[in-house]
């Protein structure tokens, strides 16, 4: 009898344990965002990029940002230092050494990766950020309160803050040319790229194409497609001829960036735990510090 009880106990505890694990993994899967299977993305083939920086010019022109004439972008001296996208430039191209051929350095375009599970969307306390069905991660300037949580949360450190006017906060980053695309146009950078190092298409299709290229040209590409799995998958994915770490791609796990923080937040707030715990704590404190009648003690 006792043995059977033990077995029953083990069984039931296993079931409960499994349930708990199931719960926790579900929580870590990040927000249940509506990822459209037709969401669009861009495949950046860094081996095809020629570093002409026409994308930088096209981006600024499309977003009404001040820019020098296109001819000035031929200046390659800007590659001497690493640049990050900021409020003046939503995308930049950086140059990296090519160990296989020092005369043919790699150039890599940097911009918002348009994550499938964006940390900026998760972290935004006023809900200004959103992942659209067309794949773009966009934000509403009118809602933004300038807390800059998105800047901290982004695993790629993309969102930039425009400091010019103190009372009118303005977060800036690549918006995947949401307005242009609604009008049936291509993203400005994709349209202008002379070598079509930027391929615009359905994200799932691009992953297939990218994988196919690495298989067909193993001497040209390293294995793997950056962004296929990283932080749960990104809308912009990359192919490279050298290890991605040599191109300063961050080493990120495959779990969605918001996963951990959300599971903590959601876990704490599940089943009214914090208010109940708070009242219980307060109750306990009251009970402990209650001024008990002295007579009872003497008894």
């Amino acid at each position: 009898m006792a043995r059977l009880d033990r077995r029953e106990f083990l069984k039931s505890s296993l079931v409960i344990g499994a349930g708990l694990i199931g719960l926790s993994t579900e929580a870590q899967a990040g927000p249940k965002n509506v990822l459209s299977p037709d969401r669009m993305g861009v495949l950046v083939d860094t081996t095809a990029c020629i570093g002409c920086r026409n994308c930088e010019w096209a981006c600024k022109t499309a977003h009404d940002l001040p820019t020098n004439p296109l001819a000035s972008y031929q200046d390659k001296s800007v590659f001497e230092k690493m640049r990050r996208p900021d409020d003046k430039a939503l995308t930049v191209v950086n140059r990296y050494a090519n160990p296989k051929d020092p005369d043919a350095p790699y150039t890599v375009k940097v911009q918002c990766m348009h994550c499938d599970h964006p940390a900026c969307v998760s972290v935004c306390i006023v809900g200004a950020f959103s992942k659209q069905e067309n794949g773009a991660v966009v934000w509403d300037t009118d809602k933004c309160i300038g807390c800059r949580y998105c800047m901290v949360a982004c695993p790629f450190q993309v969102p930039a803050f425009e400091y010019e006017t103190a009372l009118k906060p303005n977060i800036v980053k690549c918006d995947f040319c949401a307005a242009r695309r609604q009008g049936g146009e291509l993203p400005a950078c994709v349209e202008t790229c002379p070598a079509e190092a930027l391929t615009y298409g359905p994200r799932d299709e691009l992953v297939r194409i990218a994988r196919d290229r690495t298989k067909r040209y193993p001497e040209r590409y390293v294995k793997g497609v950056f962004g296929e799995y990283e932080v749960g998958g990104t809308g912009w994915i990359y192919l490279a001829g050298v290890d991605f770490s040599a191109l300063q791609f961050p080493k990120l796990g495959n779990n969605p960036a918001p996963g951990i923080s959300e599971s903590i937040q959601h876990g704490i707030f599940a089943y009214f735990v914090p208010p109940v715990a708070l009242y219980a704590l307060l109750g306990a404190l009251m009970w402990v510090s209650k001024d008990w009648p002295e007579g009872e003690d003497e008894e």
Binding site: P194, E196, Y200
Partner: peptide, 12 residues
């Protein structure tokens, strides 16, 4: 989009 367009192919 499996293969580059004309402009991309020529430039490459």
């Amino acid at each position: 989009v499996g293969k580059p367009d004309l402009r991309g192919a020529l430039h490459r």
